[in-house]
Amino acid sequence: MGLEEKAGNLGFVTTTLEAAVNWGRTNAMWPLTFGLACCAIEMMAAQASDFDLSRFGMEVNRPSPRQADLMIVAGRVSRKMAPVVRQLYDQMSDPKWVIAMGDCASSAGVFNNYAVVQGVDEIVPVDVYVAGCPPRPESLIHGIIMLHEKVKREKLAPRSKANAIRFDESGRQVDRIGSR
């Protein structure tokens, strides 16, 4: 029906804008170069020769949060580091996602004590939790693929009301609520 019938074998395909955008987002997702503890080593191992994360379009790490889409919180977050992590998250441009890699980032793992934030979800909203201490590179890759699946199903509508861009009746942009 529709365009497909008219186009015949002309060599192009049609899709929804949403699917095209999400396809682009999943296959060129840039993680922030940001390691905290032991999990960072396994994150490096996942990007190195044996596991080769670039098979999933994830090899371009960005040291600047402004250019990154994905924050992999790899390791325990101490109370001294927590404000830094939140600031990095705030500096990332929308749309952005967070993977809590490892038990420490998910729930503080074995470190139930004064120094460690009991789960990074107290500071930043987490999309995917990866279990393990540290998770094997395969687990991280699985977590990343899970995130890709999640992103593929996202709507193009603003991800949250707080950050939505609003327009008045004449089509002029009004202040973003929740922007800083």
Binding site: R86, Y114, Q118, E122, I123, V124, P125, R159, S160
Partner: peptide, 25 residues
């Protein structure tokens, strides 16, 4: 003290979870 936050077990999970300061966007 060693611990400043209450630990969630299955019997008190809901109470602890309700108080946990989850981050917003």
């Amino acid at each position: 003290p060693l611990v400043y936050e209450e630990v969630a077990f299955s019997f008190n999970h809901d109470d602890v979870d309700a108080q946990k300061p989850y981050a917003k966007e």
